[in-house]
């Protein structure tokens, strides 16, 4: 007996909101990146759960695979930016990078 669909959707929503909190509140750029990955994971879980429960012929799983590859690209570029920042400004504290705020 598998759990009903909304259990999966709530789990995905909890992951998404934890990631949202981290993106808004964390000062370390690496933690902010991890939070973005958590939000993407929540979205992915939604796709897979809908694929299983609405019988969509693997469309959701194919979409989730593309999301994973885009998330991998995003993590690579994001961490490269963090390392470039750490090298140039000797810090990864997001609250110090306010050059563009008017």
């Amino acid at each position: 007996m598998s759990p009903p669909l909304h259990h999966y959707l709530i789990l995905a929503a909890v992951l998404f909101c934890l990631g949202l909190y981290g993106v808004l509140a964390k000062r370390n750029a690496i933690v902010a990146l991890m939070s973005v990955e958590l939000m993407l994971a929540g979205v992915n879980l939604n796709l897979v759960a809908f694929d299983r429960y609405l019988g969509s012929r693997y469309l959701g799983q194919v979409f989730a695979l593309f999301t994973v590859s885009v998330a991998a690209a995003e993590a690579a570029v994001g961490l490269a930016l963090v390392i470039a920042l750490a090298r140039r400004r000797n810090s990864v504290d997001l609250s110090e990078f306010t050059d563009l705020s008017g």
Binding site: K26, R27, I30, I83, N90, S91
Partner: peptide, 19 residues
């Protein structure tokens, strides 16, 4: 991510602060 944590400066780099 673990590599990035180890490559960043330790003062803020290793602490999980909130704004």
């Amino acid at each position: 991510i673990a590599f990035a944590v180890m490559l960043t400066p330790p003062a803020i780099g290793h602490s999980n602060l909130s704004n």
